[in-house]
Amino acid sequence: MTVLEDRIEMAESGDELTLDMMFEWLDTEVISRDTAANDYGPKKDTYAAAGVPAYLIVDPYTAEWHLHTLPKDGVYHAVVGFPFGEEIDLTGTSVGLVLRTDEFPRD
């Protein structure tokens, strides 16, 4: 998550947004081979059931990110995914920033 944290710090540029504030709205997982099944399955469902507004999965094995939103009845009802290099636009959300993904880790 170092790259993500660096991007957030760069995007803040004086704003009062903190990592804690961001992660209240957006949970982020950088998967590993050992956690992939859980991150894409039960953990995603748990966050949806808890009403976490957005769940971002960063997958270094496929070099893609997946943003799950619109939680209702324990399920995220919207998902968008793109390859690394495509920005994640969160400007219309309480996070209020754009995350660059071109330097996300790849395996």
Rank of each mutant, 00 (worst) to 15 (best):
G14T: 13
S13V: 12
A48D: 04
P42N: 11
W65Q: 00
G14W: 10
Y61S: 08
A63W: 02
G74N: 03
D45G: 01
E24V: 11
G41E: 06
L56N: 09
Y55E: 02
K72H: 06
A78R: 11
E24C: 08
L99V: 14
I88L: 09
T93V: 09
E16A: 13
A48H: 04
S13G: 11
D45L: 13
I8P: 06
S32I: 02
A63C: 15
K44A: 05
A11Y: 12
I8D: 07
D45F: 03
H77A: 03
A37P: 00
P71V: 04
F84S: 05
A11N: 12
P71G: 05
E24W: 12
P42W: 11
L67M: 04
A36I: 07
V30K: 10
D107G: 14
Y47H: 15
A54L: 06
D59R: 06
T46E: 12
V75A: 07
R7T: 08
H66R: 12
V30C: 09
L90S: 04
M22I: 15
K44P: 00
T18N: 00
S13H: 14
T2Y: 11
I57E: 01
T62S: 14
S13F: 10
D15M: 12
P71K: 03
E103S: 14
E64H: 12
I57L: 12
R7G: 10
L67E: 01
E16H: 09
L70F: 06
Y40A: 04
Y61Q: 07
V79R: 14
V58S: 03
P60Q: 08
D107Y: 09
D39H: 13
E64L: 03
D45T: 10
